[in-house]
Amino acid sequence: MQPNPPTPHTATVDDKGVHVTTAAGKTRTYSGGEVMTLTQVIDLADGSATLCQASTDTCMVLADEAGQLAADCDELIAEITAKDVGANLIGKCEHLKEQLDLQAAAAKDVHDKIQGGEEACRTASANAELRHGPIFRAVADSPLTKPAERDFYNAR
């Protein structure tokens, strides 16, 4: 069974955005930020990937700092134990070390997740260019200023 052929939508533009009316009479308004060109999509994906990379670097710094502080806690626990200061202080230092280990693990986990997001953004950017770039450039380079009539597209 063949699907129904596509029906054209009408669109008008004013200072409030782009107003689209479907053949069924439903309307929707897109503000300027919702209607994007291919270049804007690619730039947004690339910018998001760059932001993700900066965030992963920050996460690794936090993980390294937490790891270093946990190592310092180990040394402090050894010194306190050697001086026989008290079990209460040793317990608090051990609890602090555990929390720092958890913080380092959480920072590493966030790093890994953001790194996956960065890869997804770069893939989306590359795919958008690969899949839609040639037709986008063909339309942008065309001397025509308006689309063809519907019969042109329906002709075989």
Rank of each mutant, 00 (worst) to 15 (best):
S48Y: 13
D151R: 12
C121G: 05
A140C: 10
L96M: 10
Q115E: 14
S125W: 02
K113D: 05
G117H: 15
K146F: 02
G133R: 04
H111M: 07
A140G: 01
T39W: 08
A82S: 14
K108R: 11
G91T: 15
E119M: 12
A105I: 00
D15L: 01
D15Q: 06
N127L: 12
T56G: 05
N4L: 05
S55N: 11
V85F: 07
H111P: 02
L96T: 04
D46F: 03
Q115R: 11
T22S: 09
A128Y: 03
T56L: 00
L130I: 09
E119R: 11
A148N: 00
K26S: 09
E75K: 06
A104N: 08
G117T: 04
D57S: 14
C93K: 14
D74P: 07
G47W: 11
A140E: 13
C52T: 01
L76G: 01
D141M: 10
V20S: 00
A49P: 02
A106Y: 05
L144R: 12
E65F: 03
D74T: 01
G32P: 09
A66G: 07
D141H: 10
L62P: 03
A71C: 06
Q53N: 13
K26I: 04
T27L: 06
H9W: 14
R131K: 13
M60L: 13
H132M: 10
A87P: 10
M1G: 14
N154I: 13
R156A: 07
L100G: 01
D112A: 11
V20G: 00
G47C: 06
A63Q: 07
L102K: 13
T39M: 00
L130S: 15
E119D: 15
A107M: 08
V18G: 06
Y30F: 15
R150P: 08
V85Y: 14
V20Q: 12
D74V: 01
L102W: 11
T12C: 06
P143A: 10
V41C: 03
E149D: 12
V85W: 06
D112I: 01
A82F: 05
D72E: 13
A11F: 04
H95I: 04
V61R: 10
K83D: 11
E98Q: 09
D57Q: 02
R137S: 07
P134N: 03
C121I: 01
K108G: 02
E119N: 11
T27V: 00
R122K: 12
A49E: 08
E34P: 09
T39P: 09
A70P: 00
P3E: 00
Y153S: 02
C93H: 08
N88A: 13
C121W: 04
E75Y: 03
K97Q: 03
G133P: 09
E65V: 05
A45F: 09
A82K: 07
T29F: 04
K16H: 15
I77M: 00
Q103T: 14
K113F: 03
T56D: 04
L38F: 04
G17N: 00
R131I: 10
I135F: 09
E94V: 04
P8V: 10
R131N: 15
H19L: 06
E118K: 14
L62R: 09
S31P: 12
T81C: 01
L44R: 15
L44K: 15
S31I: 09
H19N: 06
C52D: 11
